[in-house]
Design a protein around this nucleic acid. Structure first.
Lengths: 201, 201
DNA sequence: ACAAAGAAAACGAACATTCGTCTTGACGTG
DNA sequence: CACGTCAAGACGAATGTTCGTTTTCTTTGT
């Protein structure tokens, strides 16, 4: 199709990325060959290389998409908080993560991205930045709850926020590895563990 | 060296595994070629293939070694608990993990193993089993603390233990990705968050 | 002298990427 | 309105490289 619009370009790109996602989730980044990707996308080599200059670029695009999803989720949940306890916020985070994992395997892809970040400095930087942003948002929440009571004040808000943040990868790993049903109860636990001052829920 | 003793065999094996560890931490499992490994171990192809029948077997050995390290740590810390609070136990777990990560990069390797487990069913099974064992140990601890007070009883011990367990991978990921100094405070936070009944520490 | 262990070369397979060719739909021209 | 032109998009065989592994030959301790 010559003289094709921008939206056709975007559609192709999305077609490739969707196929890449399936491939990577099935075999991992490096055990997926470009031939696998061509087959999955029902496109030729040339067609794919028109949109991405290398395999690494595809991997990077997928990884960034995944990190953007995670950031969007945390921003949406952590920002929109009508007087909820810290435990309630984290619990909702877990629930949304689980939902997104069931429907599009957010968790599995995240674990793959962590592994890739170990050998890809630029990806590590982006992941670092992602965790930094989530952490910063949690710090604000923690400070609020430290002032209104319900959280210890003899440790820094940063350290407590790091602990909250740490629960997320742990949950993601369990969702990705185990049956998602096996961790269905965890949100209740975090809600109960950090109830906040009496009255909040 | 013909007719060589068992300990020489073991030494060679260890030599190969040590080299493999360095390679994998530098480049990841699949971006490390066997040639890289030969060079790092200062051995020829034949010498390595005498001890391991395939690259996957080397990866598996490294992964199992790492999981055994983690299990040993958790068993040592979770079992030896002279009336400590749950937070204190988890905090010490984090400290030992950080120490082992500084000296031999336990955390970085663990993240690589998680990624590999996504595409290797047998490895996923072993990782599943590892987490199951740690979880079981935590459940016992949690039940104790639920009975003696200090932990909510309106959620199952299993769910609370899952939450404790979730903190570990999160911490490992932060240690592997960020500067270990950046998470040095987290153990204090964990201790403060789950203090147990008054008097324990 | 024997057998085990290591070195080195060499193997085919599989890999990411390129490139020359073909297809196709938009668009100017009559 | 018809149609020839054009260039972009897709194609897929071909390329050169690198991979894991095997095979052959040499060294060496007993």
């Amino acid at each position: 199709m010559p003289k094709v619009t921008q939206q056709h370009m975007d559609a192709r790109r999305k077609q490739i990325l969707t196929a890449a996602r399936r491939c990577f989730l099935r075999d991992g980044f490096h055990s997926t060959s470009m031939q696998d990707l061509f087959a999955e996308a029902r496109l030729s080599a040339g067609a794919v290389y028109r949109h991405f200059t290398s395999k690494d670029e595809v991997i990077l695009a997928i990884a960034e998409e995944n990190m953007r999803d995670v950031l969007d989720i945390t921003l949406a949940v952590a920002t929109n908080r009508p007087g909820r306890s810290l435990g309630a916020v984290v619990a909702e985070l877990l629930n949304v993560i689980r939902a997104k994992s069931v429907e599009e395997d957010l968790a599995g892809l995240a674990v793959l991205v962590w592994g890739e970040a170990m050998r890809n400095r630029s990806l590590a930087g982006k992941l670092d930045q992602l965790m930094g942003r989530i952490h910063a948002n949690l710090v604000i929440l923690v400070r609020d709850h430290q002032e209104t009571g319900g959280l210890p004040t003899n440790v820094t808000a940063e350290a407590i926020a790091s602990t909250m943040l740490a629960v997320l990868p742990g949950y993601i790993l369990q969702v990705a590895l185990l049956d998602p049903a096996a961790v269905a109860e965890m949100p209740y636990a975090v809600r109960a563990l950090w109830p906040g001052p009496a009255g909040e829920r």
